[in-house]
Amino acid sequence: MTTTIVFLDGGPSQFLGMSYLAAAGGLDTKIKIEHGNGYEHYAHNGTFRLFDGAKLPVFQWCDRTRIAE
């Protein structure tokens, strides 16, 4: 698993328009971020965005799941 900086698009307002250091197996895998009582899921949407001088892959919010009790 590699760690890369990605740009998050969509999902909870706390994540909008921010870069995020995430562990991902590649651009074809989803990223799962723990948030509140669940997980926010993001997938690469095939685009890249210039952010603070770096070209980052854009990961689009695609799902939310709850943490099992």
Rank of each mutant, 00 (worst) to 15 (best):
M1Q: 12
T2C: 07
T3W: 05
T3L: 05
T4Y: 05
T4K: 12
I5A: 00
V6Q: 00
F7I: 03
F7M: 03
L8E: 00
L8F: 07
G10P: 15
G10I: 10
G10K: 08
P12C: 07
P12K: 05
S13N: 09
S13G: 04
S13P: 15
Q14T: 11
Q14E: 14
F15K: 03
F15Q: 01
F15M: 05
F15D: 02
S19E: 12
S19Y: 12
Y20F: 15
L21R: 13
A22F: 02
A22G: 02
A24E: 12
G25L: 06
G26L: 01
L27N: 14
L27E: 11
D28S: 08
T29W: 05
I31C: 01
K32D: 04
K32C: 03
I33S: 00
E34W: 06
H35E: 04
N37E: 06
G38P: 04
E40A: 04
E40Y: 04
H41V: 14
Y42L: 00
Y42N: 02
H44Y: 15
N45D: 15
G46A: 00
G46Q: 07
G46D: 05
T47Q: 13
T47D: 11
T47K: 15
R49S: 06
L50T: 14
L50D: 11
F51D: 05
D52F: 08
G53V: 07
G53I: 10
A54K: 14
K55H: 08
L56Y: 04
P57L: 02
P57V: 03
V58I: 13
V58G: 06
F59A: 01
F59L: 03
Q60L: 11
Q60T: 14
W61K: 04
C62F: 09
C62N: 11
D63C: 05
D63A: 10
T65K: 08
T65P: 15
T65V: 07
I67T: 13
A68T: 14
E69T: 09
